[in-house]
Amino acid sequence: MNGGVTKRSVGLVAAALAVLVVLPFVVGTYFTMFVTEIMIMGIFALSFNLLFGYTGLLSFGHAAFFGVGGYMAAFLLIHGFPSLPLALLLGTLAAGLAAVVVGYFSVRLDEIYFAILTLGFGMMFYTLVHQWRSVTGGSDGLTGLVLPPLGIGGFQVDVSSPRAFYFIVAFFFIVTILVLSRIVASSFGLILMSIRENKERTAFTGINIRAYRLASFVVSGLFAGIAGGLFAVFDRMASPSMLHWTASAEPVLMTVLGGAHVFFGPVVGAVLFFVIEHVITQFTDIWMIFLGGILIPLVIFFPEGVLGTLLARRRGKRFKGSGGDKA
C-alpha cells in the first residue's frame, strides 16, 4: 500500500492534465458539464477517503460538510455577495467549523459505531437545513443563484459558461489532488495510516490519537466543503438532498468501487459511477436493477476496488516476473 504519488504516476498525471485541458474543446457542452460534475464528486470522494482510506474511519455523514459548504456559498450568493472565490472560501470554512464540532464528538468512536454516529450527525444537519425555512429555504432549498463574474487578471470571466466553470473546477480538483497527496505522504499522513493499522500501538508511541483523527476529520471536512460550494455554484442551488444520508453514501460507494487504498481510487470510482449511470440511463429508466447488477460483480471480483485491484494485479505480475529472472 503506497499512499503517495510515485515517479511513474507523475508521468500519468501529466498526461491526464493534458487531457483535462484539451477536453472541453473537443467534447460538447453536456460532456464538459459531465466531467465538471465528476471532478466535483472526485474532490468530495478524495476528501472522504482521507478519513476512510488513510485514517480508517468510515464516515456516513460526510454529506453534512458538503452541504454546509454548499449552503454557505449559496446563501451568500443569493443575498448578492459580490465575490465568488470569497463565497467559496467562507463555505469551506463553515464546513471546516462544522467538522470541528462533529469530529470532536465522533472521533472517540471506531468502526461501525463511528459510521452510525456520523450518520446521526449528518441527518441532524439535514433536518436543520430542511426545517429552517427562513434561512435555508426549507425543503425547497436556496435556488436560482446569480453568479457574480470572476475577475482574473483584469478579465471578467462569466462563471455560468460551462467551459469557464469547467476550468475553475479543474483548478480546484488539481489543487485538492496536490494538497491531499502531499498530506498523505507527509509524516502526518504516515501517523494517520499507523493509527489505521494499529491504534493501540500508535498510542504507545505517545501520539494523541484523538487529536490526529480530529485533524484528519477537519481537513476532510474542509475539502468536502469546497466540493459542496462548487456543487452549489454548478447547480445554481443548494438543496437539502445534498445533506441526506443517501448523499453521504455516494463518496463511500465511489471510494469503495475505485479502491480506498490507492490515492486515485476515489476519482476512478467517481468516473466509473458516472459513466455506468450515464450508459444505463441512456437506454432504460429501470436503471437501478442494472446499476445493482453491475455493482455486485464489481465488488465481488475487485476486492481492493477497481483501481486498487488492477494495480495490485500488475504489481503481482511484475514481482512474479522478477522472481522468474532470479531462478
Binding site: 463511500v252 460507494l253 471510494t255 469503495v256 429501470i286 437501478m288 436493477i289 455493482l295 455486485i296
Partner: peptide, 26 residues
Amino acid sequence: VYGRDVSFQLLLTFGVLLVLDDAVRL
C-alpha cells in the same frame, strides 16, 4: 465478501437493494 471490510458488504448489499427494489417494481 466475508472477512472484507464492512464497507464492501455495505456496497454489495446496496447493490442487492437496488436490484430488489427495481425487481419489485417490474
